[in-house]
Design a protein around this nucleic acid. Structure first.
Lengths: 209, 209
DNA sequence: GTCTATACTTGGATAGAC
DNA sequence: GTCTATCCAAGTATAGAC
């Protein structure tokens, strides 16, 4: 099926040229096929980009679902973030292109809602991971967790974009994640103090994930 | 001077149309002047966008320097973030356009380093605010603070971009900041526990910013 | 400094042969 | 499904009159 070839070409093009610089002609050049195929299979560039976004999102979910579902603490979550960033820097495309598309389309036109809808399953995974990390603390309420998960997603997006500017393949972000990991390690035991304060008598020693 | 009119037109165009959608023709249409002026005054689109980015950054520094320099704790910092986001949603352009330019150019071409250089003074302000917020804790080392400041900048960028997708003028981010504020309020006193552990005898009651 | 006119390139999209 | 050829709009950029 050619749809796959085209989508791969889009993702590689976006990663290498940025969203500005991703045109039908350029995509076709990258993939070594004819422009007209894009319109035959997808109808328009916007639809193609949405399809590519969806594909990239599915791939990162396939790749990280298990790891995210295993998260039980903030340090766990940071470790997943490190992996994610490593893949974004090293892999064939996906996450890097995904960030660029989301960012480049961040104009509140008709496409915005569709983009958010596509990203939604991923956000749910992150929210779940966060909820388990904050179990028992005052932040474990659904609304709060969703807000904080949104913040985590935003952080991932921003880190990815800024690290692309640095052009060193994401090495500059390594220090960031290290510090973030330290912070998570330090805050984590304190969260359980909060949990104990919130639900006195519930927290027993040894229950610390 | 016309340079100002042009730069204003760029910022408005980027805010309204996104970076994809910002062309010489569109900018001229927005500002009600002739295309040729852009090349007379700036030479090329890239140079114009860089100039606009620099201008937007100067403006947000002028607007937020005092507030950032007054930050002494994490809750303080979140309050500034709320203000910043409010201005981004409501104002004539600046911060919104700034985010879009940074994000849209996040392809590691020749422009990346220049963009980072332009943003640098702002990052310094954020790093200073964070350093004062973490004074005495194990995170107060220079390197760690810079990393975390980078994370804070990334978070701001991501929030701004995602809230643009929502197209509700940034109201959806309000909940996010509320939760972030709660988290900061809760973590803040605990930080001083850490500070006390790190430097026993140094922390006296009442020294909690 | 500003406008008109224009050159040239690239982008999106379609028709029609194969 | 894929390719060729083509249309038209939009993009960047320049020359030259005013």
């Amino acid at each position: 099926m050619t749809r796959d070839r085209i989508i791969d070409a889009v993702l590689r093009t976006v990663r290498d040229e940025g969203l500005v610089g991703t045109s039908v002609r350029q995509i076709a050049r990258t993939g070594g096929f004819n422009q007209a195929l894009i319109f035959y299979h997808f109808g328009s560039v916007d639809e193609l980009l949405l399809a590519a976004l969806e594909r990239a999102n599915e791939r990162r979910i396939a790749c990280f679902r298990e790891r995210l579902e295993a998260v039980r603490s903030l340090p766990d979550l940071v470790r997943v973030a490190v992996d994610l960033h490593a893949e974004a820097s090293a892999d064939e495309c996906n996450h890097s292109a995904l960030s660029a598309i989301v960012a480049g389309w961040s104009t509140n036109n008709e496409l915005g809602p569709r983009v958010l809808e596509i990203l939604h399953p991923w956000d749910d995974l992150v929210a779940g991971a966060l909820r388990r990390s904050l179990e028992g603390t005052p932040f474990a309420q659904l609304a709060t967790c969703d807000h904080l998960a949104h913040a985590v997603s935003a952080l991932f997006l921003g880190v990815e974009l800024l690290s692309r500017l640095e052009g060193d393949g994401g090495r500059a972000a390594a220090g960031l994640f290290a510090s973030l990991g330290d912070a998570a390690e330090a805050v984590n035991p304190l969260l359980h103090v909060l949990a104990a304060m919130a639900q006195p008598g519930t927290s027993a020693p040894g229950a610390v994930g």
